Amino acid sequence: MTVWIYIFTGALLALALFWIKGMFMGFAAQRPEDYEDEHPTFDIRQHLNGQLVCEGVIYGPLGRVSSRFVADFDASWEGDKGLMKERFVYDDGSVQDREWHLELRSDGAIAATAPDVVGEGRGRQSGSTVLLRYNIRLPENSGGHVLNTVDWMYLTPNGTIMNRSQFRKFGIKVAELVATMRPREA
């Protein structure tokens, strides 16, 4: 009986350390305040506006590339309310469309909705970054699961946006996306 108590205690300790590492170190531990003094300043009304091209990869749960994509974005703003239409074309030929409705609040907070987002996404622009957290429902042909998403965008000095997103189910990372976004050349 004592051996099982040690095994159970060890397993709980390992899980606790894994959780602590995820919460206080690395990607999940970033906060908007960490970037508030960085330049250039990311203003979504300016940098997520007009015709954009996005190129990226999606990594599966084991860290291997599971999909590649190219996307065209068309974003427009009326004051602090924006609409961003996205069309993704994946390496298997499938196409996905999404429309984000964005609202920038006076304190830098962002509210975001889309048809495949459950509830409202919330985020913040701070310094050279934008953070957005939301729950996304996968298409039925991908299981229809709802994943918790943490989406960070980093503005580079030349105006390109680097995007890194992690998708979790029950706290376990099941996918990661890395992409660039930049204005479409005329």
Rank of each mutant, 00 (worst) to 15 (best):
R164F: 12
D116Q: 09
F27Q: 02
F18W: 07
I161L: 14
A186E: 14
V70E: 12
Q30I: 08
G123S: 01
T113Q: 06
Q96W: 11
F88L: 10
T160W: 07
A11L: 14
D37S: 13
T2N: 12
L17D: 00
L83E: 15
S165N: 09
F27W: 06
V53E: 14
G108F: 04
V174C: 04
N135E: 11
L177N: 07
D116Y: 09
R137G: 01
T2S: 09
M23V: 03
G56N: 05
I44N: 02
F69I: 06
Q96K: 13
D116A: 14
E86K: 13
T113M: 06
S165D: 03
K81F: 01
K21R: 13
R164H: 13
E38P: 00
L102I: 08
R105Y: 02
S94R: 14
M23Q: 10
V3F: 11
R98E: 11
H101P: 09
E78S: 12
F167L: 14
N49K: 11
L132T: 06
G60N: 07
S142T: 07
A175I: 12
R45L: 03
G93H: 09
K81I: 14
V174A: 03
V95N: 07
F42D: 00
V118A: 13
S76H: 15
I172A: 04
R64H: 04
T156W: 07
I7N: 01
V146C: 03
A114C: 08
I5Q: 06
E185I: 15
Y90I: 10
M25H: 04
A186H: 15
N148P: 01
D74M: 15
E55T: 15
I172E: 01
M84Y: 10
K169T: 03
D107A: 00
T180K: 11
G93Y: 06
W77A: 06
S165F: 02
R105W: 03
P32C: 02
A186N: 15
E78Y: 05
V146Y: 04
T160M: 11
F42M: 07
E55V: 15
R98Q: 14
F88G: 02
T2E: 00
D37H: 08
E176P: 00
P32D: 01
V89W: 04
S106G: 09
N163R: 15
M1Q: 06
G119P: 01
Y59D: 00
G108V: 04
V118I: 14
F88C: 09
R168P: 04
R68T: 09
L13V: 12
P32Q: 04
Q30W: 14
P40R: 07
F167T: 08
A112V: 13
W152C: 05
E120R: 13
N158E: 10
Y6K: 12
A186M: 14
R45H: 09
I136R: 08
R87C: 12
D80I: 06
P32W: 03
L83T: 15
T9S: 12
G171Y: 01
H47S: 13
N163P: 03
E103K: 13
M181T: 10
P61M: 11
K21N: 05
V146H: 08
